[in-house]
Structure formats: structure tokens, C-alpha cells
Design a protein around this nucleic acid. Sequence first.
DNA 1: TCCGATTTTGACCATCTGGTCAAACAGAGG
DNA 2: CCTCTGTTTGACCAGATGGTCAAAATCGGA
Lengths: 202, 202
Amino acid sequence: MAKPATRIQQKNQTAIMDAGLEVFSKYGFRGATLDQVAEAAGLSKPNLLYYFPSKDAIYTALLARLLENWLEPLHAMDDAGDPVEELLAYAQRKLVMSRDYPRESRLFANEIIQGAPHIKDVLAGELRDLVTDKSAVIARWIKAGKLRPVDPVHLIFSIWSLTQHYADFDVQVRAILGTADPFDDAAAHIDTTFRRMLTPGP
Amino acid sequence: MAKPATRIQQKNQTAIMDAGLEVFSKYGFRGATLDQVAEAAGLSKPNLLYYFPSKDAIYTALLARLLENWLEPLHAMDDAGDPVEELLAYAQRKLVMSRDYPRESRLFANEIIQGAPHIKDVLAGELRDLVTDKSAVIARWIKAGKLRPVDPVHLIFSIWSLTQHYADFDVQVRAILGTADPFDDAAAHIDTTFRRMLTPGP
DNA sequence: TCCGATTTTGACCATCTGGTCAAACAGAGG
DNA sequence: CCTCTGTTTGACCAGATGGTCAAAATCGGA
């Protein structure tokens, strides 16, 4: 029953997704217009709507694709690995994602800031479960004396906010630092931060 | 030449500013509509435009007022105080602002994420100068051995991101933690974080 | 009370926005 | 060459949006 999807379909669908990412991440759902998306995709508006039934459909498809990639690094945190290195690696992966996929980060940030109307259920469901799960892992690490005591959930919030900041507030960061690439220094800073936070102290 | 501003003018102007804050912080500049602002202010749209000449004027006025309050705590960081306590106090002040003025924080975040079209010059001017100035203070503290070495500018970014996260991503934070107020735990976590980061280690 | 200044509003407008539709246009297989 | 399926488009629509304007309502002081 499922149709194979022609070559031209795939080309246009990815063009639309990419254009939608560009526009929605810049203006938010309500601030973006279909004309903008169509132009960025190099298509006419009716043609765009031949591939996606509505503005909402494009946005929803984008969010769905995003959420997978977004949660993957946290999933990948390994119970059996070295606690400090696992957490540091997670933070660095998130930072690399901020550098390489800033539009995705801003799309997500826009959605959350505006009250997460499209994904509130995912936050309270899948995401909540995942964080609860990984928090338990971190708590076990702490109990085993492998990490300096810290609130596990707020530790995860810290990793999110510190890394995503460099994508979401990119303009501000660059305005303050000049135009130089901030990500190398950011990587060093984040490494230092979490090492001091998590490594047993004096 | 300047007119005194009647009582009714002040009442309506503040009503409009508050309504604008509510609406613009929720949808961003482009996503918000004058009708929404007018309704939130309890005025008709023409009446609203009697007090402010345009949508842009309301938004600009909001941003101007915001920026003052926003930079004040950083200004207040005292060269002569105890380094660790000054920085911790700054972080706590920012966190309290996230708790008490989340709409302001989200308004600012929306503006920055969308490329800061209205305040790019402030970022590259006033804000940049302020951060440069305070970074020098922090660098001096480090050189004097009062703080563990850390990149001063990225330290300031850390304070911003960790505190504003609780306002900007409020929905996500509450979805994960349940409905309980997250700010007490956040305060403790942030205190711990920066104390470990800045206090001389082993 | 009256008068000028301030405030409020209903009606209106041009433009934009998400979305529709029938018709025109490929492209591949026969 | 024709035809069938998939693709593209110009013209169009109803509702929303930022903004205008003249007239009406209200206010505050003399």
C-alpha cells in the first residue's frame, strides 16, 4: 500500500524540510510564512502544498525528525562507562551539535519558549522518562563514590543550557567575542566546568 | 515642551507595556498581533495605536526598558568585594530574575534567537563593553589567586545560560520535574556549581 | 455650567496569509 | 505518436493583520 516515493519527491521533500528548518528556526512557527518557506525551497507555494498538506504538517515533521536526533546522545550515555568521562562526552556531543546544527537547536528553543504547544506530550512523556532513567544512573554513580554529589536532574539541565546557549544565543556570543569562532574555547570551558563539578574535590 | 502625561495616559501606557510583554514574550515579534496586545491591555486597537504609533514602537519600548534591568546586576558586581561571593551573588540575582520576571527573559531570548534584529547594536556596543570590563575584573581576581583559573567571558556566559534556562525553558523543566517549583533546587545547584568551579581545588 | 483638550471608537483600507482548484505541463512506457 | 501518472502553476478566496480617519464620547479646569 505504501508508495515507493520517486526521486523528485525525495528531492523536493528534503528541500522543503531544509527550507522549513531555515525559516521556522528564525521566526518561530507563527512568525514564519509559507511564502518564505516556498521561496527558500525554490518552489511555488501551491507546489509546496502538493508535498505537505499544511504549514503545520511541515513544522510537525521537522519537530519529529529533530526529537530523534536530539535525544540520541542522552540515550547513548553508558551505564557501564566511566562516570566522569561519560558525562563529559555527553556534554561535548551536545556542544558539537550546537555548532553543527544550530538551526535545529533554535527551532527547538523557539518551540519551548513559546510554550511547547506541539510537543508538550513528548516532554512530559518520552523525555521525562529518559531523564528519570538517566538520573537514576547518575545517582547510582554518586552513591558508588564515582562522582561528587550533585542533583542529577539539574546536572542534565546544566549540560543542556551550557551547550545550547552557543547555538541559541549565537548572535550575542559573537557580538561580545567578535567574529572569531567561539566553539573551541567553549569546549575547553565546558570541559573544565564539569570536571571541577564532578571530580572529587579537596 | 515635554508634556506632563496625565493619569490616564500612564495607566494605559503601562497596561499596554504589560500586555505587550505578555504577548511578545509568548510569540515573538512577528508572531504576535496588535489585536492580541489590544485585548490583553483591555483596549480597542485604534485606542492602543493612540498611545503607541506602531507595533514596532511598543516592542522597541519594551526592549529598551528590559535592557536596563537586564544589565544592572552585572554592573553591580563589585571589584572590591570578595570574588567568589560576588560571582555567586550575581548568579543568584540572575536566577531570582528568571523566577520573578520570566516573561522578560523570554522576550529577550526570542529577540536573540531570531537574530537580534532590533538590538544588535546594543549587543555589540554597550553589552560588549560591559562584559569586557567585568571580564577584566575577573581576570584580575584570578591573577591575584582569589579564583581558580577560568575563561572570564565564558564564565559570564555560563551564568547567563544556567540561570535563564529556568525561565526560557520553564515548560520543559516543569514537564520533567512535575509541577513542583524548581527554583529552590536550582538555586542550590547553581551555588554548588559555581563554588566548585571557582574555589581553589585539590 | 460650559469649553477646549484629551480619549475612545466604529468603519474602513491595503496588504498579507494559509490554503484551494482547475488547468497546464512533464516523463516514461507502449 | 498517444496516454497515464505524477508534477507545476496562475488565478483565486476568505480571513487576518497593521494601520488610518473622522466622528463621538469623556475629562478637567474656569
